[in-house]
């Protein structure tokens, strides 16, 4: 795993450095023009968040039902990565919305549900930090709850009338604008790599913390 980290980090850094160039060369969307280019990182960040949420959901389930300490650590790491990507997703969406819709925020179904998802995972982290002994199980339950909320966030634009574009925009982008589709895929791949690297780093921190706890216990004995 450690051997893979450095090459993966170098590849991600290279692709990330190249991404602004690809975005600048991507075709302009006819109605929103320049501000639409926020889309490439905005969409990619929500994809990375989806992976982190899924990892947290699965890990939390394994921890709750099997008691695996490794899964607990992975769930914690994934929840933190989720909050980071969620924060960028909400801020970038707000910046885009200010220009495209004329408002910083709109309490419509998609935006409100995405905000609630972010709050659930912030809650997860607060429970882990201040919940005291046994907070791992409560946090794991929140991880499952947050994971179960994610599909509703995704489908909210199709089920309810919202100001946000529908999911069909992305599914048809390959046919309507291959130039945009290629850049969206590239940015998504970069953000997925980033998500994996951040998870690996956070897991290392949690593994070291677990080792430190064992050392403290051994020192007390």
């Amino acid at each position: 795993m450690r051997k893979l980290f450095i090459p993966a980090f170098a590849l991600t850094a290279l692709l990330f450095a190249y991404s602004p160039l690809a975005i600048a060369n991507a075709p302009y969307e006819s109605t929103m023009l320049l501000v639409q280019k926020i889309f490439y990182y905005h969409f990619a960040t929500w994809m990375a968040l989806t992976v982190a949420v899924t990892v947290c959901f699965v890990s939390s389930g394994i921890y709750l039902f099997k008691g695996s300490a490794w899964a607990d650590r992975m769930g914690f790491a994934a929840a933190e990565v989720t909050v980071i990507f969620g924060m960028f997703g909400l801020v970038s969406g707000s910046l885009w919305g200010r220009k495209a819709w004329g408002v910083w925020w709109q309490w419509d179904a998609r935006l409100t549900m995405a905000f609630l998802l972010e709050l659930i995972f912030i809650g997860y982290l607060l429970v882990r930090k201040y919940g005291g002994p046994g907070s791992e199980k409560l946090a794991a339950a929140m991880g499952i709850f947050g994971g179960a909320t994610a599909p509703f966030v995704y489908k909210s634009v199709d089920w309810w009338r919202t100001i946000h574009p529908k999911t069909s925009v992305m599914t048809s982008l390959g046919e309507t604008s291959p130039g945009m589709w290629y850049v969206a895929l590239l940015c998504t791949a970069i953000f997925l790599l980033m998500s994996g690297l951040l998870l690996a780093l956070r897991m290392r921190l949690e593994t070291l913390r677990a080792g430190l706890d064992r050392l403290y216990l051994a020192a007390e004995d």
Binding site: I38, V91, S92, L95, K99
Partner: peptide, 15 residues
């Protein structure tokens, strides 16, 4: 649009 676009990308880098 420039400040919004640059703002989003700079915010991501800083974050």
């Amino acid at each position: 649009a420039g400040p919004f676009l640059v703002g989003a990308y700079v915010f991501f880098l800083l974050l």
